[in-house]
Amino acid sequence: MRNKKLFLTKAALFLVLMFTLWSCEDTSEIKKHNWELTWQDEFNDIPADKLPDATKWTYDLGAGGWGNAEWQSYTKSSQNVAIDLVDGVGCLKITARFDGTTYTSARIKTQGLFEHGYGRFEARIKLPYGPGMWPAFWLLGNNKETVVWPQCGEIDIMEYKGQEPNIVHGTIHGPVLYSGKAITQTYGLQNARFDTDYHVFAVEWTEESIDFYVDETLYKRITRTEVESKKGEWVYDHPFFIILNLAVGGNFAGYPNEFTIFPQTMFVDYVRVYKVAI
């Protein structure tokens, strides 16, 4: 049975919200979506080998800089990627290690296993810290093998520099809009950091816009109009796959130095993907 009083309160709140939005100078409207969970990994089942569920995740392996002059070599060792209990909670740990000569880490992806367009992609993550740490939760177009990047499209739901532990970056890359021209936005915490607690990083993606969230806060909406006004191309109408990785060094975050503490771990409590319920 429906609680009428609660409903009325909600309705009143909604009106206030609508009024607030309408009275804002920026008239971008936040649509209320009715999300339906379509894919998830809660990382709660800890397998004997500690490795991620092979039906959901595959690996990018090796070194070579990954196009960004990164220093790490990606492995699929449980030293670098593991499902584990942390403070009683099952999570995915991606750990960057340094043995004095070699940096190792991990990069896992859903390519060929789960690819999806539009909807809400979210992950609850506690980030590593220290100069040169470059963790990311991002999406790449599933046609990347047939069209050259950035034509396939890239949506960086969360990127972060370990030397700025209170700032995250949300970015899209596409034709024209890549490298220094990518559309990007930062979001900062005042008096808090992303490496001390879990935060939910999400995009809500439709045929017209991509909204970037940290926890409940929408901090950037990138619209088809903005992309086209910047001479870009809206290449975000096909399925993308998910990537989680922790890079060490590179063009984005700079490089580790003697002050960087190893090992460093990116803790992922869950990854969930929603589609709009019909």
């Binding site: 936005q185 940290v214 926890d215 806060t217």
Partner: peptide, 15 residues
């Protein structure tokens, strides 16, 4: 848990 204040950014402002 550290209470946090969030900074809401204007959509239009560049990075």
């Amino acid at each position: 848990m550290i209470p946090m204040e969030k900074i809401k950014s204007n959509y239009i402002v560049s990075a």
